[in-house]
Amino acid sequence: MKVIRSRDFTADRPWGALDIANMNGVTTRLHWTDQPYRWHVNDGEEVFAVLDGRVEMRWRDGGQEQRAVLETGDVFHARVGTEHVAHPIGAARVLVVEREGTV
C-alpha cells in the first residue's frame, strides 16, 4: 500500500520519475518536469494524465502538427505510432502509464 502526494513530488532532473507500479509489464510512473521532453513514438499505447500544472501536448496526425494545452486533471492518450512531445508550462507533475521499457 502506498499513498503518494503528487504535489509534493520533485525530481533532481526534468522528467525524473517515481516508479509506482508495474502490472504485468505495464508501468505507472509519476514524473516531475519543468522542461520539454523530445519528439518520440512509443512502441505501445501511452496514457498521460496531468496531476499538477499545465502541459502543452503536441502531436503529429497525418503530417500535421496538432496542439492542446492540458490542464490539471486532463488526460492524453497516444495510440501506437503517434509521434508526440510534452512541453510543460512551468513545473508539472504527470502520471504516465505505458508498456515497460517504452521511451
Rank of each mutant, 00 (worst) to 15 (best):
E83F: 05
D43R: 11
H84S: 07
D19H: 05
L70Y: 02
K2E: 15
V3K: 07
I20E: 09
G63N: 03
R60A: 09
V26S: 04
F76A: 14
R60N: 10
L30E: 11
P88K: 00
V75W: 06
D8F: 09
E65V: 13
A91S: 10
I20A: 12
N22E: 14
H84G: 05
V41Q: 05
V26L: 06
T102A: 15
V47Q: 13
V47W: 10
A92G: 08
G25R: 00
G44S: 15
M23Y: 11
H77C: 05
P36A: 09
H77G: 01
D61F: 08
G90Y: 06
Q64A: 13
W39S: 07
R7A: 14
G25L: 07
F9I: 06
A91W: 02
D12C: 06
G62K: 01
L18G: 14
R29K: 15
L18C: 15
N22R: 04
G101F: 09
V50S: 08
W59G: 09
E98C: 07
G101N: 09
A86Y: 03
G63R: 01
V97G: 02
A91R: 03
A11W: 05
F76K: 01
E56K: 08
T102K: 05
E56R: 08
V69T: 12
T10S: 15
H87S: 10
G73P: 05
G53R: 04
V80Q: 13
F9P: 12
Y37H: 11
V96H: 00
V96M: 08
D43N: 15
W59T: 08
H84C: 01
E98K: 04
S6L: 02
P88I: 04
D61V: 14
A11D: 07
A78Q: 03
L70G: 06
T82Y: 00
H31K: 10
E45A: 10
T72I: 00
T33V: 06
A92M: 04
V103A: 12
V26N: 02
H77T: 00
E46F: 04
F76L: 09
R29V: 12
R99M: 14
